[in-house]
Amino acid sequence: MSKYLLNKFLFTVDRDPELVERYREAPRELVTWWEATMANSLLNCHDGEDSTWLAFTDDERDALIARDHVRLFAMGAHPFLALTLFIAVFERDNTEPLEYQKAYGAALSGYTLPYPDIAT
């Protein structure tokens, strides 16, 4: 399992409106494409410098495709990275102010300290 790769996915997709829309409309295709094309690119580096070994586990891939923030949190994904991406994906479907954020918090309410380790 790579918490780094989970968090990298959440971070990079959230910062690109086109990727957010692709994740909203076709999560399986976006996750598959991202893993194949972006997972091994290094953040903040020159083009052409890539890693070769990073890949999601089946559980990570499935949780990303399902957009299951509770499973992702349990795996060590940073809750704020997940929250900001999922706000971009789901908030427009809600009618009440902060409705998605409240549901997000409620879904994680079963966790008590110590929380899953989010260090990468």
Rank of each mutant, 00 (worst) to 15 (best):
Y4S: 08
N44W: 09
F11Q: 07
K3I: 00
W33Q: 11
S41H: 14
P17C: 08
A82G: 10
R61C: 10
W33L: 10
D117C: 02
M1V: 03
L85V: 06
Y111K: 08
H69C: 02
F11A: 08
H46L: 13
L19E: 09
W53E: 15
S41K: 14
L54H: 09
D50Y: 00
K8T: 03
P17G: 06
P79L: 13
H46R: 13
T95C: 11
T32D: 12
D58I: 11
H78R: 12
L64K: 01
F56I: 02
A103T: 13
Y115D: 11
R15M: 02
L108P: 03
A36K: 14
F90V: 08
D59R: 10
A106M: 08
R28Q: 04
R28D: 06
S51L: 15
A77P: 09
R22K: 15
A74C: 06
F86K: 01
W33K: 07
T112I: 08
T95H: 12
E99F: 07
T84Q: 03
E91S: 10
T120V: 15
H69E: 08
Y115T: 05
P17D: 08
W34E: 02
V13H: 00
R28I: 00
A107Y: 10
I118H: 11
A88H: 08
R67C: 02
L98S: 04
I87L: 10
L42H: 14
A119T: 14
G48A: 05
L85I: 07
T37F: 14
A82K: 06
G110Q: 02
I65M: 04
Y104L: 06
T112L: 12
N94Q: 06
D68N: 10
A26C: 05
L54F: 13
A106E: 15
T120S: 13
F11W: 12
